[in-house]
Design a protein around this nucleic acid. Structure first.
Lengths: 246, 246
DNA sequence: GCAACGGAAAGCGTATACAATAAGCGGCAT
DNA sequence: ATGCCGCTTATTGTATACGCTTTCCGTTGC
């Protein structure tokens, strides 16, 4: 079998703090999870794409058991949809879900800004600026995939600074789902986040102006949402009667 | 003890298990999940309790495969903790996690109140009052388990009325975790929610007073949190030096 | 020519078998 | 007597085997 194992080579060359028998299964699973998750978030796997267990098992060189575990995790995070007896596919968010996700982001991310402004350190700000810079750079280089991931990572990191791990994890999940929403309802060539928004936001936060950061974040999210072309496409089960009786 | 199958009584009771053939495995799994989840939320399984796969598999009459799936789901909802090679146990929330959860509830549940007040219908209010009544009744009858579950269900139902499924699901998870927190840090005999709070809340909502409902919810949650005796117990790794050097 | 039925194939759901590992325990050496 | 080491056991991690459902295609009847 020419199983080209995708994960093994690249990712496990991390810090290397523990060399030797580190071919541990847990880390391997985590890496595979990240691989698939990244592919979805970066739109290399598009909504609706089917994820056959056998194929994934062969690609990553583990058995279906491990793949199923990973798919279930992705399903609980609503990145993939598991339909009984039909297998897994990349989730295609509905218009309602899109609205819910952005409303939730509006509430949580904005609500977090004051606390973030209170807690942010110089290193945090520096790190965020670097992420924003890399994102802008990717955007200019036409690497949409990288830009999308970096944007989600920026929002996630921001939330982490609040110190509330529970809310931060929630924001990260919302950002992942937002990436899916962009894939379905976004207009090509117009990425969600404007170029300078993230930089400006860091500025407000660093100066301790939580109120202003909150308002800015609110506008920022509204702008992203407004840039979507959300139409409740009923392609799934088109109402033939209505179509032909008109 | 014999194999007393809890969920779906007689199926493959005898050793020669004939697999499959049981029409709806999915519902069965869901029921088992609910069983375990309820047991945790109702404190029949206390934080720290170990959940051995074999034992659960035997109790519910399915194989370890299905149990593992369920345990993973519970782990993602942070009701159980999965430690590698040590198996599953009911999560024992730390003091930090408890604070995070209540801060999150403060933000999300309060933030949802205005929308809930806008959307609530007469039937919703009626349903909520019934739940509150059942909760009070359970509390008076000394059935703490039932009361705890009903309280969580009340808050969850409330969030559902907002129409935002994503935030509602998040609130439900926070309530489940709150139940665990109560088990660890709560004072016996003093349940989280005061008797009349839920009734009063429904009253404010039904009269469309979102602002007031929001403020009331905030006080309500603060009261619950204040009733906890959260001390950062460092029992896990006690500082022996400090203890014995004094 | 079209629709419907039947068989074959593909892919998921579940159980079981096997391997690996950490905890418990008794023996042995010092 | 005590501390250490290897064995045993209990329990999880992973893979594989098998059955079931769905789907697709070829055939047959009208």
């Amino acid at each position: 079998m020419n199983q080209r194992q995708v994960v093994d080579g690249g990712k496990s060359s991390d810090g290397g703090s523990r060399p030797g028998k580190n071919g541990d299964g847990a880390e391997r699973h985590e890496a595979i999870y990240q691989s698939i998750s990244d592919a979805i978030i970066e739109h290399r796997l598009k909504p609706g794409a089917r994820l056959r267990e056998d194929a994934l098992a062969e690609v990553f060189g583990i058995s279906r058991t491990g793949i199923r575990k990973i798919l279930q995790r992705l399903a609980l995070e609503q990145l993939v949809t598991l339909t009984p007896r039909r297998g897994a596919s990349v989730t295609r968010p509905t218009a309602d879900e899109a609205k819910d996700v952005f409303d939730a982001r509006q509430m949580v991310e904005c609500g977090l800004m004051p606390e973030v402004a209170r807690r942010i350190t110089a290193e945090d700000a520096q790190s965020l600026r670097e992420m924003a810079a890399r994102e802008r750079e990717a955007l200019r280089a036409g690497e949409q995939s990288a830009a999308i991931k970096l944007s989600a990572a920026f929002h996630g990191r921001l939330a982490r600074i609040s110190g509330n791990a529970t809310l931060a994890a929630f924001v990260e999940r919302l950002c992942s789902r937002s990436s899916l929403i962009l894939a379905v309802y976004g207009n090509a060539g117009h990425l969600g986040c404007e170029s300078h928004d993230h930089d400006d936001l860091v500025g407000y936060l660093e100066s301790g102006n939580g109120e202003r950061a909150q308002a800015f974040m609110s506008r920022h999210l509204k702008a992203i949402e407004a840039s979507l072309s959300i139409r409740a496409e009923e392609d799934e089960a088109p109402d033939l009667f209505e179509i032909f009786s008109g």
